[in-house]
Design a binder for these strands. Structure first.
Length: 415
DNA sequence: TCTGGGGTCCTAGGACCC
DNA sequence: TCTGGGGTCCTAGGACCC
């Protein structure tokens, strides 16, 4: 028995929670580089703004009241932790599924709907974030129940068979969790246009044409829980830091600085999770939206001689791969660094003649400590260029303050 | 003027091993 | 008429998720 708590328009709700004058107004949150809409308040949806719609197509709407916010992922991450903390107080077991969703173990709860309504209200009062709850026998059905709850009821319980069947009858196949655009098109072509159709389709046919993933989805729709509540987040297999640049960059030294910056960020994330990497990959890309310009999409990877989380060793490997990596006359729009083959140091196979992990943990802990205390970038590496506004930097026109994570940005209440 | 970023799982095919 | 059989590892590509 699962409940899925899903925050409504999460990023937009976070912005509105701290800027109450935005309530009732159309608000969108933009992707990095202020590129496209990644979250929309209900009022923004009502204006017909689509998910992923480019920001430049929205400029005209600003004059009629649309508010566009640059993404502030620090704020959203902290708000997410607050929502989870409130839920943890109320249920013994939960899985943080994404930044704005939690699966809860709802077994043994007597009046599920009343309990869910109280839960919703607690989250709303504690964080200002509106949310909906779907309840069912499997995660897949809880997802589906949640989508129906978003239509207005707030809480939907599909444990009752009659209610579940009715819900599946008119639930579009494209909205089913685990059915993406490709499969939705293929399924529709053979007459499977609703969740009920998929539930009743031949399992052998599903397995043969789509594989075990969709077969699992089908069984979940039938009410058989194939997915479990995973309370512990599994260790990452890879960490990627990549960005589009604010403008096209032809200067290879600038791209190298960007890659060094991403490598340092990736190493920080790696250490925060207590992992080491045994592989490093670098990639870059010219502007794919301008096919008339010279295109180049270089990508290189190497295996490290010994696993590490030391920024200096990761930087050195990036530097080595950069030799004749970029092409003269190409202007790059995006680049990234990936750390691969991640592992816990304790889980590594030891070598009779060499250490299993290399690097200076004490030095890295010191650097991380300084940056935690005095702000990111206080202590760092020369290879990153060390500029306040590098040419490859992101465009961000209107970032909200980090209300909950930076002393200087603390909101002030006037009485 | 310009269209994001970060993940996972599954499968098929080739290389290689005994 | 004849081609062996059974296995793992790695990689690329395709699908999905938020």
């Amino acid at each position: 028995m699962f409940a899925l708590v899903d925050c409504n328009n999460f990023y937009a709700s976070c912005e509105i929670a701290w800027r109450p004058h935005l309530r009732g107004r159309p608000v969108v949150v933009l992707s990095n580089n202020d590129g496209c809409a990644i979250a929309r308040s209900p009022e923004a949806k009502a204006l017909g703004i689509k998910m992923g719609q480019p920001a430049h197509e929205l400029r005209d709407l600003v004059r009629s009241g649309l508010v566009m916010c640059s993404a502030n992922f620090t704020l959203y991450g902290d708000m997410s932790r607050r929502v989870v903390a409130i839920l943890r107080e109320q249920v013994p077991r939960l899985e943080v599924y994404s930044v704005d969703e939690c699966f809860l173990d709802f077994r043994g709860i007597r009046d599920r709907e009343a309990f869910a309504h109280r839960l919703r209200e607690r989250v709303r009062r504690g964080t200002g974030i509106n949310n909906c709850i779907g309840i069912a026998e499997s995660k897949g059905l809880a997802k589906l129940a949640n989508k129906i709850a978003k239509r207005g009821a707030g809480v939907v319980d599909l444990v009752d068979a009659d209610r579940r069947n009715a819900a599946l009858e008119d639930f579009p196949i494209a909205d089913v969790w685990g059915v993406g655009p490709r499969w939705a098109a293929k399924l529709s072509a053979i007459g499977i246009t609703t969740a009920a159709h998929l539930r009743d389709a031949s399992p052998a046919m599903i397995l043969e044409r789509y594989g075990v993933t969709l077969l699992r989805t089908q069984r979940e729709l039938q009410g058989t829980a194939c997915l479990t509540l995973d309370e512990v987040e599994p260790d990452r297999q890879q960490i990627v830091v990549s960005r589009s640049f604010g403008e096209r960059v032809e200067d290879h030294a600038a791209v190298a600085q960007a890659l060094a910056t991403f490598a340092v960020r990736a190493a920080e994330k790696l250490r925060k999770r207590g992992l080491v990497a045994a592989g490093v990959q670098v990639f870059a890309s010219t502007d794919t939206f301008r096919p008339e310009l010279r295109q180049h999409h270089p990508c290189r990877a190497m295996t490290l001689p010994t696993a590490t989380s030391d920024s200096r060793l990761i930087l050195a490997s990036v530097h080595r791969m950069l030799a004749s990596f970029l092409r003269r006359g190409c202007a790059y729009k995006r680049a990234g660094v990936a750390l691969l083959d991640l592992a816990r140091p304790s889980a590594l196979q030891s070598d009779l003649f060499a250490p299993a992990v290399v690097g200076d943990d004490k030095l890295m802990a010191l650097v991380d400590g300084i940056n935690r205390r005095f702000g990111r970038g206080t202590a760092g590496f020369g290879a990153t260029g060390w500029q306040a506004r590098p040419t490859w930097g992101m465009r961000q026109r209107d970032v909200s303050p980090c209300y909950t994570t930076r002393w200087a940005d603390l909101p002030i209440a006037h009485c």
